[in-house]
Amino acid sequence: MTDYEMIRNILSFSFFAGGMIFLFLGMLGLLRLPDVYNRLHATTKIGILGAFGVMLGIVMKVGFNSMGIKAITVGMFLMLTAPMAAHMMSRAAHRHGVGLCKESIVDEYGQSYYKDQEKE
């Protein structure tokens, strides 16, 4: 019984620490990457994995009582809504006139968009 408890504690703590390290790396990417679109890559993917890891750590510690169910709900909600928020932000950035950084090699969305404007 104590072995089982200890294994569960170690597993939940490692999920917890891993989630926080991934979240920190994502925020570091927010600082280092060159333009809005690349920063969205960092915050969306890594931030969501970090938050979900922390919530899984909570579930592993307390089991499926009311606290665990709420934690898994928060994680699922973040995982469902983050891609939509990222899509809205990147589309608004492109239409608002935020250009891509100078390392970029291709922009097929901008080409189609300007073609539409010329037709009108």
Partner: peptide, 15 residues
Amino acid sequence: AMTTVMVVMLGVYSF
């Protein structure tokens, strides 16, 4: 991104 960090902070506190 800051809201995501805050959500994780609240998760830590309740953990």
